[in-house]
Amino acid sequence: MSAIAVAKKDFRDAVRSRTLLALTALFGLFTVSGAYLASWAAEVLDGGAETTLDLIIALQTPAGYLVPIIALVVSYAAIAGERESGSLKFLLGLPHSRRDVVVGKILGRTGVVGVSILVGFAVGLIGLFAFVGSVLLVDYLGFTLVTLLFGLVYVCIGVGLSSMTRSTTKAAIGAFGLIVFFWFAWSILVQLLLYAVEGQFLLEEFPDWYVTLLSLSPDAAYGSALGAVLGESGLTMSGMYGSTDELPLAARPWFGFVVLGVWALVPLVIGILRFESIDL
């Protein structure tokens, strides 16, 4: 399998990056702080230990912010950087198809992001044991798997972006723009649209299209998918906008996986098609 050979090589190369080391350390710091906050919350809310809320506080918030950053930083230069430097000619001088290169890059960089996530979460786990005392291990495992999927999605977005340009600067601007877009612009735009349609921001009951649009960003989908796995609705759309049965399809927890799948596949397919057609 040619893509696997590319992925292995790419993993070996990219995992040695210093930026990754720094981001992983930052991630670990966040999860440990999260674990501390979780123990504090457990006392205040008197919920006691062993709630999935601990995990959400300790892990989801840091992961929700840092996994997209780590994944995009790790992947934005995956192809553009090699095109810029010329090492892509070494890679494609060997018998790899361009599709194998894109797929291999995604697998390799996901591996790298995966290592970072596992390290960050392991630090968080230690923190939870230290501050809270005990952890629901099954939920923790589910959390980890969904977060790995979340990392894969952003790697697909980053590599897809990277395959469209020869300039790492452009790819970096694109990656940074996407983070800003998903963090802020998305919900602001949807809010504005709501205001344009309804004439106000606060409603008794939000229209389905509004909830649907809010549910379609990869970050919201990550929350939904976590909710589906943990059976916890605290941070999903259903938690905020009503019970599961009344929600539009896109906002239901399990649909988060569909949304994540689309966010992975669309950039992947566009990236492959684009990369197959260009002059290096």
Binding site: K9, R16, S85, G86, S87, K89, F90, G93
Partner: peptide, 10 residues
């Protein structure tokens, strides 16, 4: 190829 660039970290 011309103007060889390799993988610095490998």
């Amino acid at each position: 190829p011309e103007g060889i660039e390799l993988y610095d970290r490998l």
